[in-house]
Amino acid sequence: MSFHIVPRSTYFKVFAALVLLLVVTVLAAKVPLGVFNTPIALSIGLVKATLIVLYFMHVRYSPPLVRVFAAGGFLWLAIMFALTFSDVLTRH
């Protein structure tokens, strides 16, 4: 059985990035940017989630099939949001 061992230094670097992003997101929320606050907060969340998925959860080193299912859940969630909002945004 062969598998990839991610070196500990990678884990620490990712962790440092995550903490940095946490600080950024809290500070960004304090700056009044109107409608842009939420997209910024969600984008930072997305970056954090991606880092966790790729490195902590080893998807970067995983077989393609695992990547398909990792992405699949989010894709289906996007379908749910898109079609539900096709109603919510156009309802009177």
């Binding site: 997101t25 929320a29 009044p32 606050n37 969600l42 959860m57």
Partner: peptide, 22 residues
């Protein structure tokens, strides 16, 4: 580990959506 990290990711989204709305 996979499960734990996933639960972590959920929180990564919950935190800005619940605490950081201005």
């Amino acid at each position: 580990g996979l499960y734990w990290h996933f639960v972590d990711i959920v929180w990564v989204f919950l935190f800005p959506l619940l605490y950081l709305i201005r």
